[in-house]
Design a binder for these strands. Structure first.
Length: 306
DNA sequence: AAGTACAGCAACCGCCTAGTT
DNA sequence: TAACTAGGCGGTTGCTGTACT
């Protein structure tokens, strides 16, 4: 009855990932794409829970991840989206290509929360703290779409955060535009607000339409899973090194192109080793010399042979 | 230089939902 | 339909690096 247990927790490794583990996971996913996470540890030789593998991949190893701090624009988007969605980090992350829910959650807790508090905004309600009074808000704003809390919050944010211009954000444009459009509608304030929300959603979707989305990562059926050729023979560094340390030494782990175990002619995904360049760059940041010595064969890729 | 406090973030935990048998 | 699990999600923890005393 039902499925088999996710994983038997006895003997599973916990804690920070090692370079060796990273390479096993990358190798496996490069060969097989994302499939059932439960099977990945066994098939890739990892002593990790499937959940742990999924987390490591989605939060750290995915080649499409952006690195570094959130830009002002991204931060503004997070604030806007948080005002709309609350602590639904995955939903928020889905509107920020290359950013993960964990990353956004961490950034919120460590940076944005403090920033908002400093600016007199309650990070939970997005309403001004007691120090902000209506006197500080131009009367014409308060008079505009009456009782429209969202509109007020936007204006308050404009006042408090002049360095982040709302005009630069398509979301805010849509909100303000829409509110203005509804400006003459004195009959139903709820309608005004709903309209804003919907418009924000559709605008965000539009923005993301041209961006690579991780949802596009193809899934394969269990019977299509390939167990990668043993990588044990490839030289590797100490497995005790930190995952965020020198992985480039382990670029050796990425077998030479002719050694790469591509066996499935039905692959539908097109990641190639170059897609991991930024990941490797990030992991190896202070080993640029080594990076420069690595040549990537542009012609090497998984072919779509249907 | 050593000790302490704090900040940032990767990873884990536990709950929930949707899917499978 | 019930029993059960995989995968996803949000909250939390704890490790590591940095700033301060």
């Amino acid at each position: 009855m039902g499925r088999q247990p996710c994983c038997d927790k006895v003997g599973l490794k916990k804690g920070p990932w090692t370079v060796e583990e990273d390479k096993k996971l990358i190798t496996f996913i490069l060969n097989n794409g994302q499939c059932c996470w439960r099977a990945i540890p066994k098939l890739s030789g990892l002593l990790r829970c499937g959940k742990s593998c999924r987390l490591r991949w989605t939060n750290y190893l995915r080649p499409d991840l952006k690195r570094g701090l959130l830009s002002e624009y991204e931060e503004k988007m997070v604030i806007d989206l948080h005002a709309q969605l609350g602590n639904r980090w995955s939903k928020i992350a889905s509107h920020l290509p290359g950013r993960t829910d964990n990353e956004i959650k961490n950034h919120w807790n460590t940076h944005i929360k403090k920033k908002l508090k400093k600016m007199g905004i309650d990070p939970i309600t997005h309403k001004p703290l007691s120090t902000i009074t209506n006197d500080q808000i131009p009367s014409n704003i308060l008079e505009k779409p009456e009782n429209n809390q969202l509109y007020k919050q936007e204006k308050i944010q404009e006042i408090l955060m002049p360095q982040i211009h709302i005009e630069s954000s398509p979301i805010d444009q849509s909100v303000v535009t829409d509110v203005n459009l509804e400006d003459d509608d004195d009959n139903n304030n709820n309608t005004t607000r709903m309209s804003c929300t919907n418009n924000v959603e559709s605008t965000i979707v539009e923005v993301n339409n041209n961006v690579f989305c991780t949802d596009e990562v193809p899934l394969i059926e269990p019977h299509e899973i390939l167990v990668p050729n043993s990588q044990e023979s490839t030289p590797s560094t100490s497995s005790t090194s930190s995952s965020s340390s020198n992985i480039l030494e382990d670029l050796k782990f990425l077998p030479s192109f002719d050694e790469w175990p591509i066996e499935n002619n039905n692959m539908e995904f097109g990641w190639e080793i170059n897609d991991f360049r930024s990941t490797l760059d990030f992991l190896l940041d202070d080993d640029s010399d080594m990076m420069n010595n690595v040549t990537f064969d542009e012609s090497w890729k998984f072919e779509q042979l249907l």
